[in-house]
């Protein structure tokens, strides 16, 4: 198989995984679908010469986040899950429309070409490794990330702790 056809297969798999994620009746399966989508995305990232991002995607987005969702589903009662699944099944017809929509849009996009009327970035290609870019060149972002983590941590302290106590 050529490079390009592997890429096409991977992209198709990604879209199919995304479709399964939203169409499956049970929320639990939907969370697993999200993990599968993430895993496929990690493979794509790896093939796009971004191994570091791929590792993060695989461990955090395919590992941690689905676990968070699954434990949330576990904490919200089972009965709820059943009735939701029933509702979701009723809606399957609606999702058939989504399938058609995806196929049509895919067809249109494939025949359409992105107009090549813009210039490529000028200047020399930077040679720093991603670690250097992340830790040495983007300190402002690092401070921002600390802020994000702090906000997330307070979110957990305030929302999750109290909801357990009650």
């Amino acid at each position: 198989m050529t490079e390009n056809s592997i890429n096409i297969v991977l992209v198709a798999a990604l879209v199919l995984a995304a479709l399964w994620t939203v169409m499956t009746a049970r929320t639990l399966r939907s969370a697993i679908g999200l993990a599968i989508t993430s895993a496929i995305l990690a493979i794509i990232m790896f093939r796009l010469a971004s191994p570091l991002a791929a590792v993060f995607e695989l461990s955090v987005c395919a590992g941690l986040i689905p676990v968070i969702f699954i434990s949330t589903i576990g904490l919200t009662a089972r009965v709820e899950e059943e009735s939701m699944a029933a509702k979701q099944r009723e809606k399957l017809r609606k999702y058939a429309a989504l399938l058609v929509l995806v196929l049509v849009v895919a067809g249109v996009l494939v025949t359409m070409h992105l107009p090549n009327d813009f210039a490529a970035p000028q200047g020399p290609v930077p040679t720093e490794s991603p670690q250097v870019v992340m830790w040495d060149l983007r300190h402002v972002d690092l401070i921002g990330q600390i802020g994000v983590l702090a906000a997330g941590a307070f979110g957990v302290v305030i929302l999750v702790k109290v909801s357990k106590r009650a």
Partner: peptide, 25 residues
């Protein structure tokens, strides 16, 4: 520019986790 793109992606993943945690809470 994979180095820059990866640095951005990793930052985004961190932000994503924070948003998901708050949303789930």
């Amino acid at each position: 520019r994979t180095a820059l793109a990866q640095a951005m992606a990793i930052t985004l993943i961190n932000i994503e986790v924070a948003v998901v945690v708050v949303a789930v809470g």
